[in-house]
Nucleic acid binder design. Sequence first.
DNA 1: CGCCACCTTTGACATCTGTCAAGATAGAGC
DNA 2: GCTCTATCTTGACAGATGTCAAAGGTGGCG
Lengths: 124, 124
Amino acid sequence: MLAGPPASSGGAPVGEVVACCPPFAVQPLTVEQAGGIAPMFKALADPVRLRLFSMIASVPEACVCDLTEGFEVSGPTISHHLRVLREAGLVESERRGTWVYYWTRPDAVRALSDLLRPGGAADR
Amino acid sequence: MLAGPPASSGGAPVGEVVACCPPFAVQPLTVEQAGGIAPMFKALADPVRLRLFSMIASVPEACVCDLTEGFEVSGPTISHHLRVLREAGLVESERRGTWVYYWTRPDAVRALSDLLRPGGAADR
DNA sequence: CGCCACCTTTGACATCTGTCAAGATAGAGC
DNA sequence: GCTCTATCTTGACAGATGTCAAAGGTGGCG
């Protein structure tokens, strides 16, 4: 299902929150849905994480060694942010030899994109 | 420029951050772009705000008096969250007589939706 | 004018978050 | 086994965030 490597890095309690809800232009979220989805937006709510995610999403997979360049924060901080993205279900990772690679979970991204899609009462 | 009611409630320093960038499946964000967009995701990162926003987005406009129902937080807290959404550029508001109405800014929502749209290297 | 309902602002407080330094873990290669 | 590199974990701390109680407008209505 993924372009990238096989599933891995089990550890996130994310399961399958992924397929979710109609666009909220169509129907409001329930309490449970909002509670499940907010963490994904929260994961994208930090500028460093947002940029990290965009770097990962723009290539089939990204090595941490390439991600750390171009940031002014320390290695541990990058690692922390990658963990947040992983635990939110937005990316997955795998160690291959010396390096660790990250790639996006397209289904999760699509779920968010669908939520924001226009087409309801308020969007023309 | 907006489908909704006339502009109002000036106060947010949001200007026109709205039209922005290619989907990050296509191209990573710059530091500046990430800094401009992260606040929008941050505004959606809280379950209460996310639900408030979905309630506003699912109708042409929403009265605060209707929004406060169905939440377990106090009135001031709802007001605070609405302000965050407004200052992030996601909604606008206007007082009409006794009541205050909120509606979404479709252009802002579309900007986020476009960012998340699949179609790049990592998606499929 | 006086009162009340609606909504926001202010002030305070506990919790969460981003960051770094220091230490730990995992592989590669000698 | 030892060492070196790459990455993650832990611990600590300043600053941001969500929440409420109390107080402050704003407008309708008698």
